[in-house]
Simulated scan of single mutants.
Amino acid sequence: MPPKPKFTREEITAAALRVISRNGITALTAQTLGQELGSSARPIFTVFKTMEEVRQEAKTAAMHQFEGFAEKAVHYMPAFKQFGMQMILFALEEPHLYQLLFMQGDGRPHSFEEVFAGLGEPAGVCLDILQREYGLVETEAMALFRHVWIYTYGIATLCATGMCRFSEEEINDLLGQDFMAMLVRVKSGGLNQQTPHPMLKS
């Protein structure tokens, strides 16, 4: 009979998330995780096969945390802009978790559709809001979301890396101005076709 695990999967995952939150994904090792649990590394591997499995579980838990953070936006008006605010505030409050979720590439370029699929439930909620509150069809909502998300991602990444610091008022103004400008463009048909920049054409 295998030994009874000293820690549950949830306890180990929560400890891994704490290590990453404090010091980043590179700080998560069997040794640091064992120290966080107040134990040796051995009990970890009665539950997980490898540290990579632990990292993936921690990433899933981080996404759940981000989704809970983003869901607060539905209680604000306008909700879509607040989703952007929540993303940037998450980057400010949990920079290492933001980096884990949104700044860990796999070495190959991805289409925006692939990126969108990895954004979790909040992205789908945003599309619904854009269609319902602004009278956009799905293609228009996606075009608007694409542009505003890229803009928001840039601000959030500047915050998560410590390169820039913005006040909530500044973030609110930046997102509001960009959103209104792009909403006018999409309603006029100017943002529906995603034409590549000349420098990006093959």
Rank of each mutant, 00 (worst) to 15 (best):
E67W: 04
C126T: 06
V54M: 07
K59S: 14
I88A: 08
K49Y: 08
F116R: 15
E94Y: 14
A62R: 12
A123L: 05
E121S: 13
L33C: 05
K81M: 10
L101N: 09
A91R: 15
M51Q: 02
S39A: 11
A123P: 03
A79N: 00
F145N: 00
P43N: 04
F83V: 06
T157H: 08
L37W: 01
G84N: 13
E138D: 05
K59I: 10
S39H: 01
E94I: 06
E133G: 02
L127W: 02
A156M: 08
E169K: 13
P95W: 07
Y134M: 04
G124E: 10
R55V: 15
Q65F: 13
Y98W: 15
G84V: 04
P109T: 03
V115P: 04
R55I: 14
M63G: 07
E113G: 04
Q86K: 13
M163N: 14
F80M: 07
A61G: 04
G120S: 06
E94R: 14
L130M: 00
L100P: 12
Q65A: 15
F48A: 01
E71D: 13
T157M: 09
H75N: 06
M85C: 05
C159P: 08
E67F: 07
E121F: 10
L92I: 12
M77N: 12
K81Y: 03
E168G: 04
Y134S: 03
G118M: 13
L33S: 01
L130I: 00
G107Y: 06
V54T: 08
S39P: 04
F83D: 05
L144H: 02
A70Q: 10
E121P: 06
G38K: 02
F116W: 11
A73W: 00
A73R: 01
V125E: 13
G34A: 03
R108K: 13
A79D: 03
F90C: 10
G107A: 06
T157S: 14
T152L: 04
H110K: 15
M77F: 11
K59F: 10
I88K: 01
I150T: 10
D128F: 04
F166Y: 15
F66T: 02
Y98M: 13
L33V: 07
L97G: 07
M85Y: 05
L37Y: 00
E52F: 09
H64Q: 14
C164W: 04
Q35F: 05
Q56F: 12
D128R: 12
T50N: 08
H64Y: 10
A91I: 13
E168H: 11
G118W: 05
I88R: 07
D106T: 14
P122H: 09
V47Y: 04
A79H: 02
S39L: 00
F45N: 02
F166H: 09
T60F: 12
T32C: 02
A91F: 14
P43D: 04
Q82F: 05
E36A: 12
M163W: 10
H96I: 07
G162I: 09
A156W: 03
